[in-house]
């Protein structure tokens, strides 16, 4: 014992780790993912597999180019989380290259070119999604309703064939806009809310058919995240409240032109955004007050883009815009340190 091992305190460490965190997030995504697959079929599984494989491949490539430990970072689960989140935005029968391009861009450009895990100022999944939405708007908006989907009776082989060979032409006839997209287009044609909502199997009790369940399951997963203390309550609560209040305000002003706030909460990427995307710690604000402003900003911008913007859903843009504001929010919302006055 003449030479003892020395180390700096603390000498013990809690059980928390990045992989544990990321895989808990993936586990909490599972209910929403299952609901998504239930309503939109085997295509989801195909795209998810493709997305995960692409993500890990890109991650490995970039890690070796950047001379980083592949052992350490390939197993951290962060690339899988990005890939899974992006998958929710890709239509189930979309061509395979859509997923590959989106995920590659997310991992290579949005994540690694900015410095890799922990250094990306923008949420990689959202950057990938926005790239796809802007570059391939037709492919990205070609959704099937759950009802059409079950009516088509595609088996797994047919799905694979559509995704890898036929591309969008094979399903062109049956695809249509997602509920939020449809709603926006119809509203712009000055149809009233009541007409739109009664006019088709696109809308369910709260939001879009199928989508309301995906959102409900994402909410459940989000509550699990809160319970596991993976995320703080500030961002989701602020975002959902801001969206609810903005939507509620305009809905009360003119129910014919502005949709029910519940439709906003349970359609599109609202719940996924609130609990899984906006809460991505790397790109979000980190002080508690900052998180409130950050979440509220996302809620409001989402509503603005959905209502008056040119895109079907606003969550991705709202998140990216608020990502930009996060450092400033952090700067101005520092907590008061122990033993320092209010103004110190």
């Amino acid at each position: 014992m003449t030479v003892l091992r020395t180390s700096s305190s603390p000498h013990i460490h809690g059980p928390n780790s990045v992989p544990k965190l990321m895989f808990t997030v993936l586990a909490c995504l599972l209910p929403a993912l299952l609901a998504h697959g239930w309503f939109f079929g085997a295509g989801i599984a195909v795209h998810l597999t493709l997305a995960c494989a692409t993500a890990l491949g890109c991650e490995a490539l970039m890690l070796s180019l950047r001379d980083k430990s592949r052992m350490l970072f390939l197993t951290d689960g962060s690339a899988l989380v990005s890939a899974t989140l992006l998958c929710f935005a890709i239509p189930p029968l979309a061509p395979w290259w859509l997923t590959v391009i989106g995920v590659s861009f997310a991992i290579v450009v949005a994540k690694h070119l900015y410095g890799g895990l922990g250094h990306n100022p923008f949420n990689p999944a959202m950057v990938g999604y926005v790239l796809l939405l802007i570059s391939f708007p037709r492919e990205m908006t070609a959704w099937l309703t759950p009802a059409t989907h079950s009516a088509l009776h595609y088996d797994f082989g047919a799905t694979l064939d559509l995704i890898f060979n036929a591309g969008i032409t094979g399903v062109d006839a049956v695809t249509m806009a997602s509920p939020l997209d449809h709603l926006r287009m119809e509203l712009s044609r000055t149809h009233s809310m009541v007409e739109i909502l009664n006019n088709g199997e696109l809308y369910g009790r709260l939001g879009g058919t199928g989508w309301e369940w995906v959102n409900a399951m994402a909410l459940l997963g989000g509550l699990l995240l809160l319970w596991r203390k993976i995320i703080h309550w500030h961002i989701p609560v602020a975002m959902l409240l801001a969206l609810l209040i903005s939507a509620g305000f305009f809905h009360l002003l003119d129910p014919g032109r502005y949709s029910d706030p519940m439709l906003h909460l349970f359609s599109g990427a609202t719940m996924l955004g609130a609990f899984f995307i906006a809460t991505d710690p790397v790109s979000a604000a980190t002080t508690n007050r900052g998180r409130l402003y950050y979440g509220a900003g996302i809620g409001i911008i989402t509503y603005i883009i959905r209502t008056w913007g040119g895109y079907p859903d606003g969550v991705a843009f709202a998140v990216l815009l608020m990502n930009m504001a996060a450092p400033t929010l952090d700067h101005f919302t520092q907590p008061r340190a122990f033993g320092h006055g209010e103004r110190d």
Binding site: S7, H11, I12, H13, G14, P15, N16, S17, V18, L21, S69, L72, F73, D76, S78, G115, G116, L117, G118, H119, H232, P281, V282, A284, T286, T287, P335
Partner: peptide, 20 residues
């Protein structure tokens, strides 16, 4: 020691657990 496992350091992911 129990909890004596200091794994390899990874980049900060800004989770904010430390501030909590």
């Amino acid at each position: 020691l129990p909890y004596g496992n200091h794994g390899a350091a990874m980049p900060c992911i800004r989770c904010g657990n430390c501030a909590d």
